[in-house]
């Protein structure tokens, strides 16, 4: 029958959810207990959802991964339970090569949120991962200024531990290969 999903296969074990769980989105105050501060506004941290919590857990261990559908081999990101191509629920993590190409960037001058006011101007990239088509991540430009940016510039992931329980994926120009 067209469109019928293959029978669900046993799922590969995934990293256990972090304890305590990542705060969920829905409130402006996402700071963690014990982190109260009167001087520095908290970086906004929309919570992981039940699809993505395991991905963030991998990032905390400095692993960048995408999902690989074991039904049709399509790679996907962000994390979702169903494959959008074959609708299989069977998948596994695949380590990303950690490299990509700059698809776009913006240099932010306006402090839209107090947590980032001291950081302007800062550069956010949209990066097309080398692992496959249609896989895009966002992150800060690291280790260089925006003057180096160009369409398709090769970049590589760097992990930035940004606070208790929060690791982010940033991008720096890739070292030239010999």
């Amino acid at each position: 029958m067209p469109g019928a999903p293959p029978a669900a296969e046993p799922r590969r074990p995934r990293p256990a959810p972090r304890t305590p769980p990542v705060p969920q989105a829905g409130g402006a105050d996402l700071r963690q207990k014990g982190e109260e501060t009167m001087t520095e506004p908290e970086r906004p941290r929309p919570g992981a959802d039940r699809d993505s919590a395991a991905w963030w857990e991998l990032v905390r261990g400095h692993r960048l991964a995408v999902q690989r559908c074991t039904g049709c081999a399509l790679l996907r990101f962000p994390a979702r339970e169903y494959c959008p191509a074959c609708r299989s629920r069977s998948w596994e993590w695949q380590d990303s090569a950690g490299t990509g190409r700059v698809a776009s960037w913006t240099v932010t001058h306006q402090p839209f949120h107090p947590a980032f006011a001291a950081e302007v101007p800062y550069t956010v990239l949209r990066v097309a991962l080398d692992d496959g088509p249609g896989l895009h991540c966002w992150g800060r430009l690291a280790g260089a200024g925006p003057e180096v940016l160009a369409a398709g510039l090769p970049v590589e992931a760097v992990f930035t531990d940004a606070g208790p329980g929060l690791t982010l994926v940033d991008w720096r120009p890739a070292a030239p290969r010999r």
Binding site: Q24, A25, G26, G27, A28, R43, P44, R45, P46, G47, A48, D49, S52, W56, P78, T108, F112, H113, A115, F116, E119, Y122, V124, C137, W138, G139, R140, A162, L166, L168, D170
Partner: peptide, 17 residues
């Protein structure tokens, strides 16, 4: 109020808001 997590969780921590 912030929108639901979804894509925002991969953007907001970088100051993409």
């Amino acid at each position: 109020p912030p929108a639901g997590a979804f894509d925002l969780q991969y953007q907001a921590p970088y100051g993409l808001l």
